[in-house]
Design a protein around this nucleic acid. Structure first.
Lengths: 80, 80, 80, 80
DNA sequence: ATTGATCACACCTTGC
DNA sequence: GCAAGGTGTGATCAAT
């Protein structure tokens, strides 16, 4: 029955959203705890953001290299 | 050493963020799958949103009642 | 002249913002006055918030129904 | 009757909030219109913010001067 | 491709 | 001074 399918979808989405909220709450608690230990949350956030960008950049760069490699591979194949 | 503490904090935050991203990805997959089964994601999103807002409103209403109760308690205290 | 256009835009925005600030100030005064009459602003705020969320939920629900109706309309079109 | 008073307060607050939302909507429309005329909303926002800060600074400075003047006035009074 | 809408994030102000 | 709500911004995603 289609209604069961719909109900199932909604419940799965809501379960995911509940978990996401929990994780966000956990992260918030980490920041609060860090603040209690003398670490400025604002700075931590910056650090995390910078690291995220760097990781992103590295990932994209390696994808790019991969693309180059593929093209060279293709050309090599074509040359044979 | 403070540096270890800082590193620990950042790693914990990043772990949380990784999990959040995974959950978000899962949710996205549910929508994609639903669409494959003929359910318009747009409608599912609205349904979920409406349900969330209603639950929110009910939750806040109980907070309100709780606040009322606290004030009545205070008045009772004052009356004694 | 483009400069006049820019000036006009900025002035219109600033006029809006001035009015917004005035309204916010008026609202604040209502809360202060209410407090003077023995009404706890905290409770009033919650009341207003709960009412707003309920109205929001109802509004979104009607949007949802509208979306349903549109889809049914589409299906009818396809069926003809 | 207290209930009428409460109802009146809530309605006044809600009226204010409705007007605030309307003004915000108007402001948003100005930005959209500006964008249509080739003005980047982000830049406009910055301009408006800078002007606001300057106006604030001028206002505070004149308050400061006023305070100085009052103090001098007081001292003059005391000296007489 | 580009706009439009939604969502998550960060900042800032306000109330307590 | 902290906690919370509101505001603005960036990213993501759907639709044109």
């Amino acid at each position: 029955m289609s209604n069961n399918q719909l109900t199932s979808i909604i419940e799965r989405v809501e379960r995911m959203e509940a978990e996401i909220r929990d994780m966000q709450e956990d992260r918030k608690q980490i920041y609060i705890e860090a603040k209690g230990n003398g670490f400025d949350p604002k700075i931590i956030r910056k650090l995390v953001a910078v690291r995220r960008k760097k990781i992103e950049a590295v990932r994209e760069e390696s994808e790019l290299l991969r693309t180059y490699a593929d093209q060279i591979g293709m050309q090599l194949d074509l040359a044979l």
